[in-house]
Design a protein around this nucleic acid. Structure first.
Length: 415
RNA sequence: GGGCCGGUGCCCGAGCGGCCAAUGGGAUCUGGCUGUAAACCAGACGGCUUUGCCUACGGGGGUUCAAAUCCCUCCCGGCCCA
């Protein structure tokens, strides 16, 4: 927990029977690891007999949340948005219990476009806008940087976002008895706006709860994937189960305890046992492995998790060229692959060419750089800048494992 | 509508006629050391048919032997005035 509007809230949630919501704006077609934190919290609260509402932001996504964003963002087209809403709705549906067996804590999946796109402008301004003071709104930290900076502005569209989110909370309160909103720490201002709106319009009390921004021990934002600016997605076609597994396995020692607590549903005993192992024998990475296994299970299922674990161990601990064919294929199942004509290899294939073709290098110049820096491996054996790739490298008469750097693996299949 | 300021590589940001593929920082990548961490150290960081050539400093046009740098114009952003 990062901030909480009222300390009595925790007792309330412990007792159960509270309706809680978290919103997810469809800025992309998939949710990412950052969203998983809110999802886990909802799930945890559901396990404690509260009723979770997952709200897809089909309406708020039309506007765009300016909170703590450095610049105005381009608007998504309606087509993109619909596509994204579809994607994240189906993902949200996987994490909570929507069946009748959950009884009074059965989860709800809603989309705020249902009310945001139908309310009339004048109704909205009279009923909702009247309760907001611009004086207070411009004082919020979440928009302050945009107002203070000399080179960027803040459009009325984005400025209004807070009202929409506040109205969401109000509608969920009135229609579904929702009294708590959770979110990341950047959502504090928006959540408080909703609480005040509910108080002014109904004189009911409601609550907010935010979670801390997850940081790695080096201060970077958590959740950016290996290889740059891409996020770690929950959609298997964007981030494969193996990649997700590896990402979590590579968590550093300092953040792993926090991640275990946020993202897994292990018992207190199990977690403190893992903490101890990290203390005493960090090189075993027991906590990281448990974390990776638990999260991949949660997101992609047990089977995907155990095969990711097997692949991970095989790929890094054994000499890959000694694996039998079936095991080898399983290890690289998630890796991207490319077909190459057998004849090309027969005459000796240029490594530069192959790196570009497999997209392991973005250009020939980059491929040469990797080779010069001695960062290219065939079947886990480093090759020299001048080496050609020949039939001698081929495993099981049709496979080549090409790797760039520590983590980028590619399967080449001869045809 | 008027006045002023600004738009440079992934981001921030210097350059303000030739010595500019463009200083610096961050991010990223590769290697080293490690534990498939972190920290640290070293190097790379537009492309190509690579002692050279091509494409790039918001778009288009112009001046000049020569433009990211000067002029015109358009687009976009900011501030102030109406």
């Amino acid at each position: 927990m990062h901030q909480c509007t009222d300390d009595s809230l925790l007792d309330l949630l412990g007792a159960g029977n509270v309706t809680v919501y978290a919103g997810f704006d469809p800025t992309a077609s998939s949710l990412h690891l950052g969203h998983l934190l809110q999802i886990c919290t909802l799930r945890r609260l559901q396990l404690a007999k509260n009723r979770p509402i997952a709200l897809a932001g089909g309406g708020t996504g039309l506007i765009g949340d300016p909170s703590f964003k450095a610049t105005e963002r381009p608007l998504l087209t309606v087509e993109e948005l619909n596509h994204n809403v579809l994607g994240i709705r189906s993902q949200l549906a996987r994490f909570l219990d929507f069946t009748d067996s959950a009884g009074s804590s059965r989860a709800l999946l809603l989309d705020n476009s249902a009310w945001l796109t139908t309310i009339s402008l004048t109704d909205f301004l009279r009923d909702v806008g009247k309760h907001f003071s611009v004086n207070q709104m411009i004082a919020r930290d979440s928009v302050k940087s945009r107002l203070d900076r000399a080179d960027v502005g803040l459009s009325f569209t984005e400025f209004s976002y807070m009202l929409l989110q506040a109205y969401d909370f109000y509608r969920l309160h009135v229609d579904h008895g929702c009294t708590v909103q959770i979110g990341g720490s950047d959502q504090w201002g928006n959540i408080v706006g909703g609480i005040e709106l509910i108080r002014k319009m109904t004189s009911h009390a409601s609550f907010g709860l935010t979670s801390p921004l997850l940081l790695r021990s080096d201060g970077q934002k958590f959740g950016k994937s290996e290889g740059g600016n891409d996020r770690v997605w929950l959609d298997a076609s964007l981030t494969s189960p193996f990649q997700l597994f590896q990402f979590l396995l590579n968590s550093d020692d300092e953040t792993t305890p926090t991640l275990l607590r946020f993202f897994t549903f292990l018992s207190h005993e199990e977690i403190s046992e893992l903490d101890e192992k990290t203390q005493n024998s960090p090189q075993e990475r027991a906590a990281q492995r448990a974390l990776a296994l638990a999260v991949v299970s949660l997101v992609h299922g047990d089977e995907a998790a155990s095969s990711a674990l097997r692949a991970s161990e095989a790929l890094f601990s054994e000499s890959i060229s000694e694996l039998d064919e079936a095991t080898l294929l399983e290890v690289v199942a998630d890796a991207p692959s490319t077909n190459v004509n057998r004849d090309e290899v027969g005459s000796g294939l240029d490594a530069v060419e192959l790196l570009v073709r497999t997209k392991l290098a973005a250009s020939k110049a980059e491929a040469r750089r990797f080779l010069d820096q001695r960062g290219v491996y065939v079947n886990n054996v480093r090759i020299e800048p001048t080496d050609a790739i020949t039939l001698d490298h081929v495993l099981h008469s049709r496979y080549l494992i090409l790797r760039r750097g520590r983590h980028q693996t590619h399967l080449i299949v001869l045809s």
